[in-house]
Write a protein that binds this DNA or RNA. Structure first.
Lengths: 349, 349
DNA sequence: TTAGATAATTGGAACGTTCCAAATTTGTCA
DNA sequence: TGACAAATTTGGAACGTTCCAATTATCTAA
C-alpha cells in the first residue's frame, strides 16, 4: 500500500517541473506562470499531497511556524473557555493553529508546557499565568524573541505585553450602582487575596465606598476560592455576621452564581432580598435566573484582542511590549434588584 | 546578541564530543557513558539549548511528533471544556502537547483545522465531529494511518475508534426514576433531532415509558438547541400544553439549567413543583440550587479515557478500531424532588 | 600480553522543505 | 534577425535532527 508519503519531489516529477517550482506554487508566489501553477495544483490534489510544515520550519524562522500557544490556569472556568474560543477564532482565520494547555495553577505544569511548546517552535504565546509566576519564568522566552501576551493577570517585571481588564473601575462602578440603589452594607465576596487581580478589584470596592461616604467594614470582605463552591462558602459566612450585608459585589461570575445558590439555600431570593453583582459576564450570566448583573469584560472579545495583538507582534518581528487595559462596563440585569419593585420604591424616595 | 539558535552541533563542540553522542543523550539512550552524559547535560543547560522537534520529526515518523489534535464542536459548553481538560491531563503527562480547535459546528472549519493539524504532523486525533460529518471526511486521515478517536458522536461508516456514553441506558434510567416517584406525564426536552445522540436518548426515554406502562405522548417531546437558552425555550412551550407535564428529562445539563430558569420565571420551583433531570453531570450540577439530578457521564473521565485509547493506538502502530460505550449512572440530587418532602409523601403511599 | 569481546563513540547520509544565484525561455523593438 | 529585457524555471546548498555502519576505547580471561 501507499505507505510512502508523497513529497514535493513526487509532485515535481509527475508534473514535469522542478521541486523549486512546486515550492513556489505552494507559497502562492506570483513568479510562476498560471498554466504551470494550475498543472501543479492539479497534481497536488491528485496525489493527495500534504504539506510538511515541520520541514518548512527547518528553513524558516520560528515566526513562520504558524503555531501559537495558549496556556490558561483554569479551563474549567467558562471565562477561560470563552477566552480560548475568542483566540481560536482569530488564529484559525489567520491560518494558525493553537496549542492549548491547562495548568490548573501549577507552576510546574506551566513550566513544562511552555518549554514543550518552545520545542515545537511556537511563533508566540498567550498566557494567563498561574499564581506565583515570576518574570524569570518568562525570561528565556523573551530572550529568544518569541512574543508573549499576558492576559488577565500581569507578571511584575516581565517585559511582555499584557491585556487585562480594568478591575478597579469595574468594582468601583458596581459598588456605586448598589449604593445608588440605597444599599450601605455591601460585601466583597470571593477570590484569593494573594493575587493582583483581587487587590485591584478590592481597591475599586474600597474607593467607591469612600466616594459614596460609606464606611469600610473589614468583616464584609470575605475571600474564598474564585469558584461557584467558593461563592457558596463566602455567602454562608456573610450571613453569619451580626449585621448582615444587604448586597455583594463578587470577585467573578462563578462566585456570584455560588452566592445566589447559597442565598436560595437560606430561602433568600437573590435580586429581591439581596443584591448580587458579578464580574466577567460569562455567557450564562444573561440566561441565568435571576439574570446576573455583572461587570462585562467580554471574555471572547478579550481572547480576540489578545490574539490580534499577538499576531501583530509576530508579524512586526521584534515588537515593543504594550500594556492594554481593556475597559469594562456594568451591565445591569435582575440580580442587583434594580429592575424590581424595590428599585421603584427606592427611586420614589 | 545571541540571535543564533544553539544546536546540537554547538553542544557537541563545546562538550568535546560528536553530535551523534549528543543526540544519544537527548534520547536518554543507555549506550552512553554516565560521565559523558553528565557533561553533555551540563553544557545543554549552560548554553540554554532548546530541542528542535521539527527537525527531529523530519527523520522520524509522525507517530513520534508528540502532538495530538483535539477538535470539538462547542468549547463554550462546559462539557467539552472539561473533556478537553481530561485529555490535557493525560497527554501532558505523556509528554505530548495538544492542538485544540473549536469548530462551532461548522464543517468547513472542521475540514480546515483537521488539514492544518495534519500538516503539522499530529500523531493522532480526538474528534467530537460537527453535525453532518461523514465518513469521507475522515478517509484520508485513516488512509495515512493516523489514529482517530471519535468522542460523544459517532460517524457512520468511518473505520475509527469511538467512545460514546450509553445514551439509551441513561435516559431510560432517568425516566424510570421519575416514574418511580409517581410522575406519569414526563417530557423530553431539548436537543437537535438530526443527531444520533438525540435519537439514542429519545429512544431510551420511549423504552422506559413502555417498560413502566406509561403512554408516549408526542407533544411531550420538544426539541431545541442543546443550550441553556434552548432549555428556556423548551420549557416555555411545555408549559403551554393543555395538559402540562410534571417532570422532564433533558437532553443535557445545559438544557436542564435552562429549564430550571424557565420554571422560576413562571414562579415554579424546580425540584418542588416540577422534577428536572439532566444529562452529562457537568461540574456545576452539584453546586447549583437545586442541585441537579443528572445522568453522570464524567466529561473529564471521558477525556482521559479517550486520550488513553488514542495513546494506546499511537504506540501500537497500526491499531484496530474499537468502539467503547461508556456506562453512565444516574446521580440523584434535588432537582428531581426525590430528596424533598414530596418524595416522602409519595413513598408513604 | 593479547585476542576477543563488549562498551562507547563517531562520521555521513538521510528527512522535506526554502532560498539563492544562475540558467533558460519568452517577449519586444529596432 | 539580433540583442536585450523580462518572465520563468531550476539545481544545489542549507536547516537540525536521527540512524546506520563503522570505528575506537576499554575490559576480560587465558
Amino acid at each position: 500500500m501507499g505507505k510512502e508519503r508523497v513529497t514535493v519531489i513526487d509532485i515535481a516529477r509527475t508534473a514535469g517541473v522542478s521541486k523549486s517550482t512546486v515550492s513556489l506554487v505552494l507559497q502562492a508566489s506570483p513568479l510562476v506562470n498560471e498554466a504551470t501553477r494550475a498543472k501543479v495544483n492539479a497534481v497536488i490534489r491528485e496525489l493527495g499531497y500534504v504539506y510538511n510544515r515541520g520541514a518548512a520550519n527547518l528553513r524558516q524562522s520560528n515566526a513562520k511556524s504558524k503555531i501559537i500557544g495558549i496556556v490558561v490556569n483554569d479551563l474549567t472556568n467558562s471565562f477561560f473557555a470563552e477566552l480560548a474560543v475568542g483566540v481560536d477564532m482569530v488564529v484559525q482565520s489567520a491560518g494558525y493553529v493553537q496549542f492549548l494547555a491547562n495548568t490548573a495553577e501549577s507552576l510546574d505544569r506551566q513550566r513544562e508546557v511552555i518549554s514543550s511548546m518552545r520545542e515545537h517552535g511556537i511563533s508566540g504565546l498567550i498566557l494567563s499565568p498561574a499564581r506565583g509566576t515570576e518574570a524569570a519564568d518568562l525570561k528565556s522566552l523573551v530572550a529568544s524573541g518569541i512574543p508573549v501576551v499576558n492576559v488577565v493577570r500581569q507578571v511584575a517585571g516581565a517585559k511582555v505585553s499584557s491585556l487585562v481588564s480594568d478591575n478597579h473601575a469595574g468594582t468601583r462602578e458596581a459598588v456605586r450602582h448598589l449604593a445608588g440603589l440605597g444599599h450601605h452594607r455591601i460585601a466583597f465576596l470571593g477570590g484569593f487575596p494573594d493575587t493582583a487581580v483581587f487587590h485591584e478589584r478590592l481597591q475599586g470596592y474600597r474607593d467607591a465606598l469612600s466616594d459614596m461616604d460609606l464606611a469600610v467594614h473589614d468583616e464584609l470582605v470575605i475571600s474564598s476560592a474564585p469558584s461557584r463552591a467558593g461563592g457558596v462558602a463566602a455567602i454562608e459566612r456573610a450571613l453569619l455576621l451580626r449585621e448582615r450585608p444587604t448586597a455583594a459585589v463578587c470577585f467573578n461570575d462563578a462566585v456570584a452564581f455560588g452566592v445566589c445558590d447559597g442565598l436560595r439555600a437560606h430561602r433568600l431570593d437573590p435580586g429581591e432580598d439581596f443584591a448580587v453583582i458579578g464580574f466577567d459576564d460569562v455567557i450564562e450570566a444573561q440566561t441565568a435566573v435571576p439574570a446576573l448583573t455583572t461587570v462585562s469584560v467580554d471574555p471572547q472579545g478579550m481572547g480576540r484582542r489578545a490574539a490580534q495583538l499577538l499576531l501583530k507582534q509576530i508579524n512586526a518581528g521584534r515588537a515593543e511590549a504594550e500594556a492594554i487595559v481593556s475597559s469594562v462596563r456594568l451591565v445591569v440585569r435582575q440580580s442587583c434588584g434594580a429592575a424590581t419593585d424595590k428599585r421603584e420604591r427606592l427611586s420614589l424616595l
